[in-house]
Simulated assay, not measured.
Amino acid sequence: MLESVAAAISVIVFVLTLLWRDWIERLFGVDPDQGSGALEWIIVALAFCSAIIFGLLARSEWHRARVPVHD
Rank of each mutant, 00 (worst) to 15 (best):
53 I>S: 10
36 S>P: 03
8 A>Y: 01
57 L>Q: 11
8 A>G: 11
23 W>K: 13
25 E>M: 09
13 V>F: 13
59 R>F: 12
9 I>P: 00
25 E>T: 13
50 S>K: 05
54 F>W: 13
69 V>R: 13
14 F>W: 15
31 D>M: 10
65 A>Y: 00
35 G>F: 03
27 L>T: 13
32 P>E: 09
11 V>M: 10
10 S>G: 13
9 I>N: 02
22 D>T: 11
46 L>I: 14
54 F>A: 15
28 F>T: 06
48 F>Y: 06
29 G>F: 08
65 A>N: 08
33 D>G: 04
52 I>A: 11
39 L>Q: 01
29 G>W: 10
40 E>W: 00
14 F>S: 00
3 E>M: 01
64 R>P: 00
18 L>E: 06
36 S>D: 04
57 L>C: 08
7 A>G: 00
55 G>E: 04
27 L>K: 07
63 H>T: 05
25 E>G: 06
44 V>M: 00
42 I>M: 15
17 T>E: 05
70 H>V: 09
26 R>V: 15
20 W>Q: 11
28 F>K: 01
58 A>Y: 01
13 V>Q: 02
42 I>K: 08
24 I>W: 06
37 G>K: 06
29 G>D: 06
52 I>S: 03
5 V>W: 07
71 D>V: 06
67 V>G: 01
4 S>E: 05
34 Q>D: 11
44 V>H: 00
1 M>N: 06
45 A>G: 07
54 F>L: 05
19 L>W: 09
56 L>M: 10
44 V>L: 03
1 M>W: 00
65 A>E: 11
8 A>V: 10
18 L>W: 05
55 G>Q: 04
16 L>N: 08
28 F>G: 08
10 S>Y: 02
31 D>G: 01
10 S>L: 06
31 D>Q: 11
17 T>M: 11
57 L>F: 03
24 I>Q: 05
34 Q>C: 03
10 S>Q: 03
63 H>D: 05
30 V>E: 07
10 S>D: 01
51 A>K: 04
21 R>H: 04
48 F>I: 06
63 H>V: 08
70 H>K: 15
21 R>G: 15
55 G>F: 02
44 V>K: 00
30 V>H: 05
15 V>M: 07
50 S>E: 10
1 M>T: 10
69 V>C: 00
49 C>E: 07
24 I>A: 01
53 I>Q: 12
19 L>V: 14
47 A>D: 03
62 W>K: 13
28 F>N: 00
6 A>K: 09
34 Q>H: 13
7 A>S: 09
66 R>W: 08
36 S>Q: 04
37 G>S: 08
3 E>R: 01
48 F>K: 10
21 R>E: 09
50 S>T: 12
14 F>T: 02
43 I>S: 08
57 L>S: 04
41 W>R: 14
64 R>T: 12
40 E>Q: 12
30 V>T: 14
34 Q>V: 05
30 V>C: 04
